[in-house]
């Protein structure tokens, strides 16, 4: 892989290459360049993942001519496709160096931070939503129990907005989650479940299931599971899977009018609840 990067840079296939480099033993996103090829000695692959595509957007935007190489796991590729669909990056100038990834019968031996993570402790198994469980398993619980388990998780929320800030496909200038008309600001926990459901709704047709949000959540909320639910719904309703093709989903699980009102800030709790009820089947 290092060889390829070197070749790309030397031959001018790309001007810059975004990958990882070991800095005092820690892998850190790094921009490699032709005039500092020696830095490639510390080129590093490993389990850690940062939202590289988010950094790529910044770089491409800053210099409208630069051609950027990008180390891309499968999730990175999917996110790039969504960003392309949303016209958030110039796909022409981005060249992916694919790193076969995301464990499946075809890809074994994958090293990825999303496969590790804190164990599901006894109390989490009793009162909360254990992480990494398939949706079908959660659906065996009665609605009431499911709700109380989700509330156990969501009411831990510290409002760090890390799920949004780390997410490769979240990039609105004015984020609804910080709209004081919609949400109570200035106190903890976040208004559960509305806060999380609004974000979940926004992830419909976008979320590429990379799991970076869950890894960034300081209170171990199984966010990936929540957004997978939304993803499954979108797939079943519209046959759309974000990241497969560079076309956007034009409808959401909310009707157009509802969506408009939501965006315009005329939210009513019931509306969100309605969406949630549909989301949770």
């Amino acid at each position: 892989m290092r060889k390829t990067v070197q070749q790309w840079l030397e031959e001018g296939i790309v001007d810059l290459f975004l990958g990882y480099r070991a800095v005092e033993g820690h892998p850190i996103p790094w921009v490699f360049r032709k005039d500092a090829l020696h830095e490639l000695e510390a080129f590093r692959e490993g389990p850690y993942r940062y939202p590289l595509e988010k950094l790529a957007v910044e770089i491409l935007r800053e210099d409208p001519r630069v051609r950027l190489g990008l180390l891309a796991r499968s999730c990175t590729e999917r996110a790039v496709t969504v960003l392309q669909a949303l016209h958030a990056l110039d796909r022409e100038r981005l060249i992916l160096l694919q790193e076969p990834c995301c464990p499946s019968p075809l890809h074994r031996g994958v090293v990825c931070s999303s496969l590790a993570g804190p164990e599901n402790g006894s109390q989490k198994r009793r009162d909360g939503i254990p992480r990494g469980r398939p949706l079908e398993e959660l659906e065996t619980w009665e609605a009431d129990e499911r709700f109380s388990r989700w509330m156990h998780e969501l009411e831990k929320c510290l409002k760090c907005y890390g799920c949004r800030d780390v997410c490769p496909v979240c990039f609105c200038d004015q984020c609804t989650l910080q709209d004081p008309e919609l949400f109570e600001t200035g106190s903890l926990p976040a208004e559960a479940p509305h806060f999380h459901l609004v974000r979940a709704v926004h992830m419909a047709g976008r979320c590429v299931d990379c799991g970076l949000c869950e890894e960034a959540c300081p209170v171990d909320i199984p966010l990936r599971t929540l957004y997978r639910k939304v993803g499954a719904l979108v797939r079943d309703l519209y046959g759309y899977v974000p990241g497969h093709e560079p076309v956007p989903l034009l409808w959401g699980p909310l009707g157009d009018g509802e969506l408009e009102r939501l965006v315009a800030g005329e939210r009513s709790r019931e509306m969100v609840w309605e969406a949630v009820r549909r989301c949770s089947g």
Binding site: P118, E119, N120, G121, S122, Q123, K124, G128, K156, L158, P218, V219, D220
Partner: peptide, 10 residues
């Protein structure tokens, strides 16, 4: 608080 809540969940 992250660690406190984790301990709690364990």
């Amino acid at each position: 608080a992250t660690r406190v809540l984790r301990a709690r969940e364990k």
